[in-house]
Structure formats: structure tokens, C-alpha cells
Amino acid sequence: MVRYPSAVLSFLVMSEFFPIGILFFFACAVAGGILFVDSFFGERRPNAVKGSTYECGIETKVDARRRFHVRYFVVALLFILFDVEVALLYPWAVLFRRLGVEGFIMVGIFMALIVDGLVYAWKKGALEWE
């Protein structure tokens, strides 16, 4: 085995993360390089419209730091809940037959807990928009 002078160096070269390091280096080099070249050769003609803030081409109307209604957050929370649920159900669906009755019962318990939460949210009026 080759002895590298330091543990850090040996780790850098030997580990399976080395290709990721190369990728990281080139990503930085390309992005940084383009910005660098652009700052030398690029033309600059600023005006008021160009310099204004925009998002997805839509003109700004109000300050970004305005308050959002709490219902957006409730919907976002519920969305994440069911998003994660589906992500966890998918592998089970693929292996449905092989996991057998035991797997079915386990997923049933998991679903029951989540449905309990959904019914609770529903009862509390989290799904009412107006």
C-alpha cells in the first residue's frame, strides 16, 4: 500500500469521493470562469428597467417582506405530510407481494396514524379556504 505523507492527502486521493471532488472542482471552475471572462469582455449598459428586481418576468408590486395568510402554511404542511407518505408507500407497493401480510399490517398502522392526523386537521378546519 502506498503511504501518503498525511492522512488528509491519503483520504483525498484514496476515497471514493475523489470523483465527486473532481466534479466539484470543474463546476466551480466553469461557473467562476464564465463570470470572470464576462467581467472583462462583457458589455455593460444598465438602465432602470434592467436593474429592477423581478421574479419569473413578473413586475414587482409590493415589498417581499409582506405577511402571508397562515392557511398557506397549513396547506404546505399537509402537502409535505402526504408527499412523504407517498414516498414511503412506493417501495412497499413495489414489493407488495413479497412483504406479505406482515408488511400489510405495518403499513396499515402507518396509514392509520397519518389518517388520524388528516381527520384531525379536517375537523379543526385546516382544509377550509375561506
Binding site: 414489493l95 407481494r97 413479497r98 412483504l99 406479505g100 406482515e102 408488511g103 405495518m106
Partner: peptide
């Protein structure tokens, strides 16, 4: 349908 996978529950 493959072989059943036992859950790791003893």
C-alpha cells in the same frame, strides 16, 4: 412474484 421478504421483527 419473488421470494417473500421477512420483516426484521423478531
Amino acid at each position: 412474484m419473488g421470494t417473500p421478504i421477512p420483516l426484521p421483527i423478531m
